[in-house]
Amino acid sequence: MVYVPSILFALLASYRDDNLPARVPYVFPAPGTDPVADALRARRPNNTLLDLDGVLNNNTIPGTMRELIILRSAVISNAAYIWIQHEPVARSEGLTTAQLQTIRFAPPFSGLTPGTTFHGTLAPELVAALNFADFSLSLVHIPDAVYNGLSEFLSDSQMVLATATVGFYALTARFVVGLNIDDKMGVPVPIPQ
């Protein structure tokens, strides 16, 4: 783990990056058009996005699928903090209360076959994303059938992004739980209402 002194973090967050090129295009949503970008702006001293944010905003996974993966990481890791932060984003992306309840209560690996009764609230692509997240988060090894099930709905580059999203939020869950961020370490993941 890399230790970033707080003074360095404050310095990095205090000014606008210089927009030097990256391997992928930057995406900077205009203020008021993207709740995640607006939340990031609100945390910054000068209300702007960093180049890193511009790269991360280039994620082309459908919003419902991205948020399902993030919320599933909260469930599998019992990271209430992540769920609390992302449930409103998931709702803004179009996930319903019934779908959120399925994401919250489905036992790991329960969606091995799309169309099962338990997953009646989720479209086939979201069942595939749930399966993918469960295997990646719980076992790391993703069977070919599960990987191929999600790749039916995503391009190769989106599969890379889905894998990165699962990995990033697995790390994030361990980080926020391990450090007891916002005193949520022992708090159960909320039940969607």
Rank of each mutant, 00 (worst) to 15 (best):
V2L: 05
V4M: 14
I7E: 14
A10H: 11
L11F: 12
A13Q: 14
S14G: 15
S14T: 06
R16C: 08
R16Q: 15
D17C: 10
D17M: 04
N19K: 12
P21R: 01
P21S: 01
A22F: 08
V24S: 13
G32D: 05
T33E: 05
T33V: 00
D34Q: 08
P35R: 09
P35E: 12
V36P: 04
V36K: 11
V36Y: 15
V36L: 14
A37K: 13
A39V: 05
L40K: 14
A42G: 09
A42W: 08
N46R: 15
T48W: 12
L49I: 07
L50H: 13
L50A: 08
L50K: 14
D53H: 11
G54I: 03
G54E: 08
L56A: 14
L56F: 10
N57D: 03
N57Y: 02
N58H: 12
N58P: 04
N58F: 02
N59S: 03
N59M: 12
T60W: 00
T60L: 11
P62M: 11
G63V: 09
T64E: 05
M65N: 05
R66E: 15
R66H: 06
E67V: 04
E67A: 02
E67S: 09
L68C: 10
L71D: 01
R72V: 08
V75C: 11
N78Q: 13
A80C: 03
W83C: 04
Q85E: 03
H86N: 07
H86E: 01
E87P: 08
P88L: 00
S92C: 05
S92L: 11
L95F: 04
A98P: 11
L100S: 00
L100Q: 07
T102W: 12
I103T: 02
R104C: 10
P107N: 04
P107G: 00
P108D: 06
F109Y: 15
L112E: 15
T113Q: 15
G115A: 04
T117C: 07
G120F: 03
T121G: 05
L122G: 13
L122T: 13
P124H: 11
L126W: 09
A128Y: 00
A128V: 03
A129G: 15
F132A: 12
F132K: 03
L137T: 06
S138P: 02
L139M: 10
H141M: 06
A145Y: 07
A145S: 11
L150I: 02
S155I: 06
Q158M: 13
Q158E: 15
L161E: 15
A164K: 04
V166Y: 01
V166H: 01
G167N: 10
G167V: 03
F168E: 07
T172G: 04
A173K: 07
V176Y: 00
V177R: 12
L179P: 04
N180S: 01
D182L: 01
D182S: 05
D183A: 13
D183F: 09
I191C: 02
I191K: 10
